[in-house]
Amino acid sequence: MASLVHCPHCGVRPRQEFTVKGAALVRPAPDADKKSWMDYVYLRENPSGRYEEFWHHSSGCRRWLVVIRDTATHEIEASRDAALVGQTDART
C-alpha cells in the first residue's frame, strides 16, 4: 500500500495523489455528551492490524474514501467511496 492505493473510481494510483485524514470513526450526535465528543476528537485505538481510515483522492477524483488497511503489512483489504459506506461527515 504505502506506494499504491486502489481508488474505486480511478483504479490503482500512486500514494502522492492522496491526502490521509485519519481514522474513519462514526461522528457522535450533535447533542451527545462531552465525553463522547472528547473521545471522538482526541482518542484513538491505533491497532497494529486492521484499521479503517479516511483517504481523500486530492489529485484525482477528489472523492473521500474509506480504506481498510493493515497497519503492519500495509495490505489493503478494501477501498470504497465514503458515501457508499454511509460516512458522509468526513470533512476536517
Binding site: 504505502a2 500514494r15 497494529s48 500495509h74
Partner: peptide, 14 residues
C-alpha cells in the same frame, strides 16, 4: 511522516 498509521517501520519511496 508517512502521513498514515504504520507499524511497518519502512516508509515508502514517495
Amino acid at each position: 511522516l508517512d502521513g498514515y498509521n504504520s507499524y511497518a517501520q519502512r516508509g515508502n519511496l514517495a
